[in-house]
């Protein structure tokens, strides 16, 4: 039995399980010992980046550069959101359900996203907008990372793992948008979900030509545009009713 490159990388950084067993193995297995020496040798080569020094006045210099560009401070979340009504409590409950849905996707039941008659539609919609906006931002990052992958053998295993993390949450938000009757959001999330699944279930390593085919099939540029536009709209929806606080 030999240890994989990934296991030896984890071992190098002190995160491998059963470290003692790997120690013993490296003492007896020439192949693994040689592989480990190569990994350690490369990482020793990139020991540290020579960072240019900045003296004690640097902080002041940075301040002088930014002081005239300070933006309007956004209000604390509770100031923008707090409503001393039942609606605010229900909004918090919906938030918790979304968070639960994101991190415990296998758990029953799914997020209670339908708004009851007693829930403030505004509060519920804003919670939903905020959660979906965050999700779209993260999805945009994974799509960008995927389309920017390169190399002689294009390895997208990391992007696949990342996309897999987003699929369950995406399904939850799409269902929520459908139930809320927002066809635009549901449509974009549906398209996003199909693309995420395509990434997840596609090959992990490809030749540049194969990768180009996958990239063309995804039509990521068009999807990225839709994701960005929708994310922007949701942010505007979120900010519209609240006047930002100018404190300077």
């Amino acid at each position: 039995m030999h240890y994989s490159e990934d296991e030896l990388i984890l071992y190098h950084y002190g995160e491998a399980r059963r470290r003692e067993r790997i120690d013993e193995h490296l003492n007896t297995c020439d192949a693994c010992a040689a592989a480990y020496r190569e990994i350690a040798g490369t990482l020793a080569l990139v020991a540290d980046v020579d960072v240019p020094e900045r003296d004690d006045r640097y902080g002041l210099e940075v301040w002088q550069r930014i002081r005239h560009d300070l933006p309007v401070q956004e209000p604390p979340w509770w100031m923008a959101w707090y409503r001393p009504t039942l609606a605010s409590g229900l909004a918090l409950f919906i938030t918790a359900a979304f968070v639960a849905g994101r991190y415990w996707p296998d758990g029953a039941p799914a997020a209670p996203v339908t708004q009851s008659d007693t829930t403030s539609p505004d509060a519920g919609a804003r919670v939903l907008s905020l959660a979906i906006g965050d999700h779209l931002d993260e999805s945009e990052r994974v799509l960008l990372d995927f389309v920017n992958a390169s190399g002689d053998r294009v390895d997208v295993s990391g992007q696949q793992a990342w996309a897999a993390d987003l699929v369950d949450a995406n399904r939850l938000y799409r269902d929520a948008a459908e139930r809320a009757g927002d066809d635009t959001i549901a449509g974009v999330l549906d398209e996003l979900e199909r693309n995420l699944l395509e990434i997840v279930h596609g090959p992990s390593t490809m030749t540049p030509a194969e990768f180009e085919t996958v990239r063309a099939r995804l039509d990521a540029a068009a999807l990225l545009f839709k994701v960005r536009v929708l994310s922007g709209e949701l942010r505007e929806r979120d900010l519209a009713p609240t006047e930002p606080r100018k404190t300077t």
Binding site: E5, D6, I9, Y13, I39, L43, S157, G158, A161
Partner: peptide, 13 residues
């Protein structure tokens, strides 16, 4: 996700 972070390091190395 944890696995995505781990894979990003693996690919970098």
């Amino acid at each position: 996700g944890t696995s995505a972070a781990k894979h990003a390091v693996f690919r970098a190395v």
